[in-house]
Amino acid sequence: MADLLNDTQISEALATLSDWQRDGDSIVKTTKLDSFGQAIAVVNRVAELAESVDHHPDIDIRWRTLTFRLSTHSDGGITGKDVSLAQQIDETINSL
Rank of each mutant, 00 (worst) to 15 (best):
M1Q: 04
M1W: 05
L4E: 04
L5W: 01
D7V: 09
Q9F: 13
Q9K: 11
I10K: 01
I10L: 07
E12T: 14
A13E: 01
L14R: 11
L14D: 07
L14I: 14
L14K: 10
L14Q: 08
A15N: 10
A15V: 11
A15M: 09
T16M: 07
L17A: 01
D19I: 06
D19A: 11
W20T: 02
Q21H: 15
Q21M: 13
R22I: 00
G24T: 08
D25M: 12
D25L: 13
S26C: 13
S26I: 02
S26F: 12
I27G: 00
I27C: 00
K29Q: 10
K29L: 08
T30H: 03
T31R: 03
L33R: 07
S35Q: 06
F36T: 08
F36G: 01
Q38S: 14
A41W: 13
V42E: 03
V43T: 08
V43H: 01
N44S: 11
R45P: 00
R45Y: 08
R45M: 13
R45F: 13
V46S: 02
A47E: 10
E48Y: 15
L49Q: 12
L49K: 12
E51F: 12
V53A: 11
D54H: 13
H56V: 07
D58L: 06
D58H: 03
I61Y: 02
R62M: 12
R62E: 12
R62N: 12
L66P: 12
L66G: 09
L70R: 02
L70H: 00
S71L: 10
T72P: 01
T72E: 01
T72Q: 02
T72M: 05
H73F: 07
D75K: 09
G77K: 08
G77M: 08
I78H: 01
I78V: 11
T79V: 11
G80W: 15
G80Y: 13
K81Y: 03
D82R: 09
V83F: 10
A86R: 09
Q88A: 09
Q88Y: 04
T92K: 03
T92C: 05
I93H: 01
N94E: 10
S95E: 11
